[in-house]
């Protein structure tokens, strides 16, 4: 039993509950509890991560369990950055519960991957592997932020067009702000994804001599990459609603790349 991670989960759950309450009831004291809990959860989570790293003697990002946990960790980082830059609270209401959910999922998933972890990380390319996975997980977190910002954009845009406003409307940040968050996060996510794909190609060429395996994960990553490339390229023509739609669709692809291809097998299935 991973008690550090369990403690982190408790803190995250507490943070999630308080973030939702703060959103619903606009209480600053409740919001502070949420932020402090999130901070505590993050510290514990980081500690759990470092302890695994030291204990197992390898970078603890392998297999579904560790990936989910790490994804949650990167989401907290992404939220911290967005919060620091834009001072928006609404994002936390959607993001923190997801973090809690991911950590819960990580705790429930069976650990089967550990035995094979060493074999993948072997050889001269050993150091590239953790960079490859870390970059991609961070890019997923960035794309999730794009998704959340896009959803907020579309929701509000729809209400503005229909001229009927729900209670949610008054609590979300302005259209310009969410548009800005979305495009910044998309830029970051795209950069990370590009680097992730490049490191992946290096890794695979060193291990098998091929840079491309036509494996579903690679194909979907490439499609995602092309979609965001198009979005960034047509940034001005697509400003607003279209960008937001791409943000949502792109995240669908990211999810599929992350989870869906696991079911289709291929080079990238380890755990």
């Amino acid at each position: 039993m991973n008690y550090l991670l369990l403690a982190a989960l408790a803190a995250y759950v507490n943070a999630a509950v308080h973030a939702i309450l703060a959103f619903a009831y606009k209480r600053r004291s409740v919001e502070r509890v949420a932020m402090v809990s999130l901070g505590v959860g993050f510290a514990l989570h980081t500690a759990a991560f470092l302890r695994d790293w030291i204990q197992d003697g390898r970078y603890p990002l392998f297999g579904l369990r560790e990936t989910l946990s790490f994804l949650a960790w990167t989401l907290v980082v992404a939220y911290g950055l967005a919060h620091f830059r834009y001072q928006i609270k609404a994002l936390g209401t959607f993001l923190i519960p997801l973090v809690a959910f991911l950590v819960t999922a990580a705790m429930l998933v069976r650990t089967t991957a550990d035995a094979r972890a060493g074999t993948v990380a072997e050889g001269a390319a050993g150091w590239v592997f953790p960079i490859h996975t870390t970059l991609l997980i961070f890019s997923y977190a960035a794309f999730f932020v794009v998704f959340a910002a896009s959803a907020m954009y579309l929701w509000q845009e729809r209400e503005l067009k229909l001229k009927t406003f729900s209670a949610l409307f008054h609590r979300l940040p302005s259209l310009t702000t969410v548009d800005d968050i979305g495009s910044t996060a998309a830029g970051i996510g795209f950069t990370l994804l590009s680097l992730g794909i490049v490191t992946g190609a290096i890794l695979s060429s060193q291990q098998t001599g091929r840079i491309w395996h036509n494996d579903p994960k690679e194909v979907f990553a490439l499609i995602t990459w092309l979609l965001y490339l198009t979005m960034i390229h047509y940034r001005i023509q697509w400003r607003g609603r279209k960008s937001a739609l791409v943000g949502v669709a792109g995240f669908g692809l990211v999810l599929f790349t992350f989870l869906g291809t696991r079911l289709m097998g291929g080079y990238h299935v380890f755990g």
């Binding site: 503005l160 409307f169 302005s174 310009t176």
Partner: peptide, 8 residues
Amino acid sequence: ELGRKIFG
């Protein structure tokens, strides 16, 4: 208020 909602 609506202006703020759109432009921040």
